[in-house]
Design a protein around this nucleic acid. Structure first.
Lengths: 346, 346
DNA sequence: CTGAAAGCGCTTACAG
DNA sequence: CTGAAAGCGCTTACAG
C-alpha cells in the first residue's frame, strides 16, 4: 500500500534531531530530555508516524511474536473443544503481554517439527507454545536440544526438569473419577483412553489403575481401550463394551466427544445409563451438559492451561527460565451419567 | 538463540559468489546458471542456511502473513463453534498458499479497529481476514478507505461492490427454514435472531419475514427477539416465549447454543418439542445432534467460509482484486425438533 | 549469467 | 542529553 509512508527519518528531519533520538523516544529511553521527547511525540502524531515492526525486529533480533503449534492436522484439532478453549487462554495472555500470535498451519499430519523449524530458522518467532505432549516427542526433543524458549501444555515424557510446562494432575483426576464410580457402587470399570502416544493418556491410565488396585477391584486389560478423539472411536468401543460377556458397569472416557459416541452405542443397544453402565468423561464441554444424558465430566480448565502456557513462555524468553512447572486444578462435575442408583429398582 | 547464525553472506563467501547471486537462487530466479545454482544449494545445505524471513520482509516490503481478526472479545468467540470451524478452513487455506497467520488478540471489546490499524501500520501483515460483518462496520470502512487488501466472512452492509466477501445466502436459508416449519403445520413462528449489529441477523430476519408474508402468516414483531450468542439469551427468550398468552408453535433460532438455552427453558416449563413448539436453528454443531432433543439446524459450512476467505484475500493481495463475492451453500439438517406431527395425538 | 551498490526502517554501542 | 556510524539480513534495479 502507501509504502514509503512516514519513517523515523521523516520525523527526525521535521524535528531537527537525529533518527537515533527519535528511536530513543519510541523505546522510551529515559535519557532523552522531556522537552525533546514531547516535541518528537507531537511530530510523530502530526505526521501519523508508526514504527515499522519488521525493521525493528531485524534490528533488535527479536520478533515480539510467539508461535502456537496446533497438534496434528488443524482439521482434527478444531473438532475438540479443548483447543479452542486453550486458544482463548493463549490469546488472552498474549494480549496482556503484548506478544503477537503466529498460528501454525500444518496441513499434514506429523509436520509439526517442520513447522517449528521453519518458524525458528526463519526467525519468525521468539518462542513457541506446544499444545500437546507425546511420548517420544521429537518437537520437545528438538527444542530442548537447541535450547529455544518454549512451553508445553501437558507433561513431558522426558527432560521434564528442563521444559516449562503446565498441566493438570491427570493421574489424580483419573484416580478420583474411578473412586467416584466405585463410590456409586460400580465394580467393573472400563476405560476408553485417548491416543497411546500422548503422555496425558498414560497419566490417566495410571490414575485409573491405581484406584483399581487400592480398591481391590480387578484390573483387566481387556477393559482398557485406546484410540483417537472422535465420536467414531467412542461408538466403536461402546458397542464392543456393550456386547462383552461380562459387561462392565462403568466406563471412564477421555473426552466428551468420544463419550457421546459411546452413549449413542449404549442407547442403540438398550444399555441404560447410569444403571447398567455409568459414564464419566473429561473436558466438560457444553455437550456434556446438553447430551440426552448429561455426563459427569472433568473440567480441565483449558483456558487456564493456555493462559499459563504463555506466561511460562514469556518467562522463558525474557528471563531464560527453564523447567518451571505449573499445575492447573481440575474440577469434577457430577451429572446424571454417574448418578447414585436408587435402592429399589427393577 | 544462536544468533548471527549463517547468513546469505556466509553462503556467498563459501561459494565465491556475491550475495546477490545467492539471493537469486533463493528466490528461484531463472537467470542463474544451473551449475552455480546447484553449487550454491549444496553449500546452503552444508552450512544449514535458512533465509531470514524478517530481513526478506523488510527488503521486499511484503510479510507473507495475513492477519485474522476475531470479532469482539476472544473469550466470547471461542464459545461459538462457528469460529473454530472457520479457523480450520483458514489455516488449511493458509497452509496451501504458504501464508502465515497472525491471530488478533483483542482483549477488549471493540478494539478490533485498533488491532487492525496496528497490524497494518506496523506492517505486520499483507492482508486481513475479517470474521464478521457489522452494520456500520468501522473496520470495513477503514480498510476500504485505505484500500488495504482484505476479505470478509459475511456480507458487507455498504461498499459491497468493493469488498471481497464470502457468505451463505442467509436470506434464503431463513426463508427455507420458515417454509419448513410451515410445511410441518406450524402457523405462528417466532424468531430469536442474533446481535442486531450483524448483517447476518438482518439477512436472516428478512428471509423469515419474506416467508411469513408469502404464506399469509401474520408477522408480529413481538415474536422477534435479538440478542447475543449464548445460552443465557436463549434461555431468557425461551421463558418469555413459553409464557406468552398466545404461544407460538415454532421458533427459529440463530445458533445452536442459543437454541439449547431455549430448549432448557421449554423443558423446564413443560413445553413439548416439537409438538407444542418446534425449533430450528443454525450452525449444525455437534451439540445439535446430541441434545436431549436433536435439533434441526442449518449447516453454514463454516470451514468453507474460512477457506474461501483466504483464497479471496490472496487474490486481493496478489492481483489487487476487489469486490469479488463467493456464495457458500448451506444445508438444512432435519431432526427431531421439527419432526412432522402425527395425525392423532392428545 | 553475475556483481557492486544502495536501500528496506529501525537500533545501539561508542563518543562526546 | 544527543549524534554519526555501523549494522540487522535480505533484495533489486542498474550495469556489464
Amino acid at each position: 500500500m502507501k509504502k514509503g509512508s512516514v519513517t523515523i527519518k521523516d520525523v527526525a528531519e521535521r524535528c531537527g534531531v537525529s533518527p537515533s533520538t527519535v528511536s530513543r523516544v519510541i523505546s522510551k529511553s529515559p535519557r532523552i530530555s522531556k522537552a525533546t521527547t514531547e516535541r518528537i511525540l507531537a511530530v510523530m502524531d502530526e505526521l501519523g508516524y508508526y514504527p515499522n515492526a519488521i525493521a525493528r525486529s531485524l534490528a533488535r533480533n527479536k520478533t515480539g511474536t510467539i508461535g502456537v503449534i496446533m497438534p496434528t492436522t488443524s482439521e482434527e484439532v478444531f473438532l475438540n473443544p479443548f483447543f479452542p478453549e486453550a486458544m482463548r487462554g493463549i490469546t488472552k495472555a498474549a494480549a496482556k503481554t503484548d506478544y503477537d500470535i503466529l498460528l501454525s498451519s500444518n496441513s499434514e499430519k506429523d509436520e509439526e517439527l517442520k513447522v517449528i523449524q521453519n518458524f525458528i530458522r526463519s526467525s519468525k518467532v521468539d518462542g513457541i507454545v506446544l499444545m500437546s505432549s507425546k511420548l517420544n516427542d521429537e518437537c520437545i526433543e528438538y527444542l530442548c536440544e537447541i535450547n529455544f524458549p518454549f512451553s508445553l501444555i501437558g507433561t513431558p515424557h522426558v527432560h521434564s526438569e528442563r521444559v516449562n510446562h503446565v498441566d493438570n494432575d491427570n493421574i489424580m483426576a483419573a484416580y478420583e473419577l474411578t473412586q467416584h464410580l466405585r463410590d456409586i457402587g460400580k465394580k467393573k470399570i472400563a476405560m476408553i483412553a485417548g491416543d497411546e502416544q500422548l503422555t496425558m493418556t498414560h497419566d490417566r491410565v495410571n490414575g485409573y489403575k491405581r484406584a483399581i488396585d487400592e480398591n481391590n477391584l480387578v484390573f483387566n486389560k481387556d477393559l482398557l481401550f485406546t484410540g483417537s478423539f472422535d465420536e467414531e472411536t467412542g461408538n466403536k468401543y461402546g458397542k464392543i463394551i456393550a456386547k462383552l460377556d461380562e459387561q462392565p458397569d462403568a466406563v471412564i472416557i477421555t473426552d466428551d466427544l468420544v463419550a457421546f459416541g459411546a452413549v449413542r452405542a449404549f442407547e442403540d443397544l438398550g444399555v441404560r445409563i447410569p444403571d447398567d453402565i455409568a459414564i464419566a468423561s473429561f473436558n466438560n464441554s457444553v455437550l456434556s451438559r446438553y447430551s440426552s444424558i448429561p455426563l459427569t465430566s472433568v473440567d480441565v480448565n483449558a483456558v487456564s492451561l493456555g493462559y499459563s502456557s504463555v506466561e511460562l513462555l514469556v518467562d522463558a524468553i525474557d528471563n531464560n527460565v527453564r523447567g518451571r512447572k505449573i499445575v492447573v486444578p481440575y474440577t469434577i462435575h457430577r451429572r446424571k451419567s454417574t448418578e447414585i442408583l436408587m435402592e429399589s429398582r427393577g
